[in-house]
């Protein structure tokens, strides 16, 4: 026991707790109970340890000790690879795959959260050592609030208007509103599609959103989330029954065609609205200098 024991202990506990709070298993069922969680809590514990120990080593003038944070960085990059590989492997056996963009987003979140843990335990230990435990608790709380802000991105209902449209056939072509989805030849299949299918039109609220919802990864994420939440009328060997999203090239609206097992319009609207906007799909053409007053810099 020395003067650093309690501060380090405090930092490690706060850090591990914060990883635990960030590790929510929701409808995505990832990471799965229980082994997946153990991996991430263990890594969170290591991250917390690294963050907490960094402060005393600086105070003891052991500046080289800080270099081991770089080891941490490469370690957590490895976490990102691990998550990406696992999810990509699993994706080929999903009835409606997540898509690469969604997987990349999840993997990045896992890496990022470990750095947030380091940050949290670093600050709590620092505040404990410089002031007292009260300041440390305050620092931990502030970190928690920042984390909550980091954790929740926007969802689709913030950026698009969702409207129900019954899908219909024009000859062999399946349409949602005026957006062509696919060609289905067999009359039998067409009846199934009309019976089980639902169509939604997502209208972008502004110009930036157009390119975001046009992103193929974002569209696949919508289909995946809807299939997870509402079931999907599909099996291997029935390739014609496939949920699809196509785009209206004229105005950037997208037509969502889904085959839920549970045919409730309100629920489907809620589920589509709650789909996360993928970080990797967000585009901001309005921020471009070339778009603002002919290249005038701000």
């Amino acid at each position: 026991m020395n003067e650093y024991t309690y501060p380090i202990l405090f930092g490690v506990i706060v850090g591990t707790l914060s990883r635990f709070i960030m590790l929510r298993t929701d409808y995505r069922q990832y990471p799965t109970y229980l082994h997946g969680k153990v991996i991430h809590i263990a890594l969170g514990f290591i991250a917390a340890g690294l963050g907490a120990v960094a402060v005393p080593s600086i105070m003891e003038k052991e500046f080289t000790a800080v270099t081991f944070l770089t080891i941490a960085a490469s370690q957590f990059r490895e976490v990102r690879n691990m998550e990406r590989n696992t999810l990509s492997e699993l994706d080929s056996y999903e009835l409606v795959p997540r898509g690469k963009t969604y997987i990349e987003g999840i993997a990045v979140a896992f890496e990022g959260r470990n750095y947030l843990v380091i940050f949290t335990s670093f600050l709590s230990t620092l505040f404990y050592l410089v002031w007292n435990i009260g300041a440390a608790i305050l620092a931990a709380l502030i970190c928690y609030i920042i984390m909550r802000k980091f954790m929740s991105g926007s969802t689709l209902k913030d950026i698009v208007d969702i409207e129900f449209k019954e899908p219909h056939f024009d000859g062999a072509g399946l349409y949602v509103d005026n957006i062509y989805i696919m060609n289905i030849g067999l009359p039998e299949r067409q009846q199934e599609v009309l019976k089980y299918g639902m169509g939604f039109i997502l209208t972008p609220k502004n110009f930036n959103v157009r390119s975001t919802i046009a992103n193929l990864g974002q569209r696949q994420a919508i289909l995946h989330d809807v299939s997870v939440s509402m079931g999907v009328f599909r099996d291997s060997g029935t390739p014609a029954l496939v949920p699809l999203i196509k785009r209206d090239l004229d105005d950037g609206r997208i037509g969502v065609f889904i085959l839920p097992q549970d045919k409730s319009i309100d629920q489907a609207k809620r589920v589509i609205g709650a789909v996360p906007v993928l970080e990797n799909a967000i585009r901001m053409p309005s921020e471009s200098k070339a778009n603002n007053n002919g290249g005038e810099s701000k």
């Binding site: 289905i184 030849g185 067999l186 009359p187 039998e188 390739p239 014609a240």
Partner: peptide, 23 residues
């Protein structure tokens, strides 16, 4: 229609109608 439905299941492909008499 019958042959197309069977082939669709066997080949794991989608039958598309190019015209009324051609799938």
């Amino acid at each position: 229609d019958k042959i197309a439905a069977n082939l669709e299941a066997i080949l794991d492909g989608i039958s598309h109608a190019l015209s009324d008499d051609l799938y």
